[in-house]
Amino acid sequence: MSRKLDGKIALVTGATSGIGLAAAKRFAAEGAAVYLTGRRQSELEAAVTAIRDAGGTATGVQADSSNLADLDRLYARIESEAGRLDVLYANAGGGGMLPLGAITEEQYEDTFNRNVKGVLFTVQKALPLLGRGASVILAGSTAGSMGTAAFSVYSASKAAVRNFARSWILDLKDRGIRVNTLSPGPIRTPGLVGLAGPDAAQQEGLVDYLAAQVPLGRVGDPDEIAKAAVFLASDDSSFVNGVELFADGGMAQV
């Protein structure tokens, strides 16, 4: 039986843990040859090994998505080895929590460099490799359309990502490239629990609090987002373009 991504070349940025790693694993399991990026070499090597040990095809390239020279090196390698890119999941990003009145220039620049600048140039520099029928997936968040205390900088950066998709489908309408935003709700990842600090009890308290805000009554698992990413990456979504797909247990819908 054919797999959903057989023969496709895929790139997942920020794929050493959490949603990115889960998506890379799912893409490989569905037949794609997957390129992964991450900033930490040891974690990147571990991610590649995990995918290969499961029978998948994976290549790791150490890169910071907000560093344009790193992106140039990444795409030069993909062009040399694969010649094209069929699926791009611009997943790398992140951010911390600070309330209005305590926001710093450093936090603003770090968050927007990772979530806005990084996404913009990850996609723009990939354009020469993306052909008709390619799928671009942008990492959004329910925070981009909801108010969240002490999270305004991150939320604003994800709202910018949502509009990238809306605008880029117009820029790319003659090329047949689809661009969609995948917006998770609270997902149990190192990045999420890390917002509560290093104390395990505080981390579980945050998870429990967020679960209470979700109509399904729980936080999500990274693999649940990865399954949604496979849908957007595959031909199953061939007429889906410019949408924001919420995988949030209903959190942003009520």
Rank of each mutant, 00 (worst) to 15 (best):
V61W: 01
K158T: 03
S135A: 14
L11D: 03
A32C: 07
E79S: 13
L71W: 03
K4N: 13
D53L: 14
K125E: 05
K158G: 01
R73E: 12
T13L: 06
T142R: 10
A102P: 00
N115K: 10
A211M: 09
Q124M: 11
D248M: 01
Q62E: 11
D174C: 00
S157E: 01
R84M: 06
A92Q: 03
L172M: 04
G249F: 06
A160H: 04
R178A: 05
V34I: 09
G94T: 01
F246H: 09
L130S: 03
E43V: 04
S145R: 14
L206E: 12
F164L: 10
Q213C: 00
T16W: 11
A90P: 04
S2V: 08
N163K: 09
L210F: 11
M97L: 14
A58P: 02
F151A: 11
Y35F: 15
L192K: 07
Y75C: 02
R162W: 09
E105L: 13
L11Q: 04
G191W: 08
G242R: 05
D199P: 05
G20Q: 06
G185S: 05
S66G: 15
D236Y: 10
G220K: 07
A69G: 09
T148Y: 12
F151C: 08
G31D: 04
K25E: 15
A28R: 03
D64F: 01
S17R: 14
A149F: 13
R73C: 01
N180R: 09
T49S: 15
A32V: 06
R40N: 14
D72P: 03
M97F: 14
P190F: 10
V136Y: 02
N241Q: 13
D64Q: 02
V12S: 02
R132E: 15
N180C: 06
